[in-house]
Amino acid sequence: MEQYTRAELLMSVDPIWSICERSMYAFEKCKIEKGDDPEVCLRYAIAVSGCTQKIMQELTKECKQELDKAVHCLEENNMRSVKCDKERVDLSQCFKLKSFEKFQ
């Protein structure tokens, strides 16, 4: 499992949530209902993690340039994603055009 930085995840929030929204909600529901024990919600955690990994691999493969630009902008702006809306929209657009169909 590859670990992605906070900047990468923060900039690809929209692509990830456009695909993995249901698994995210299921995971958080489990966490709220059954407590913070990592073993109880492991199935949901694996689902969330696997889905995120797939999207991030796709992004690093297809939209490498946009992702790098967005991460650079975020790191230059003190990790404030509000200042980098243009780069974030570009990344989402790239994902939408190139990879969104594959995950349907």
Binding site: M1, L9, K31, P38, I46, S49, T52
Partner: peptide, 12 residues
């Protein structure tokens, strides 16, 4: 929105 991702990764 990135909280569940980090949480799941941390659990695993």
């Amino acid at each position: 929105k990135i909280l569940p991702i980090v949480q799941a990764e941390n659990d695993i």
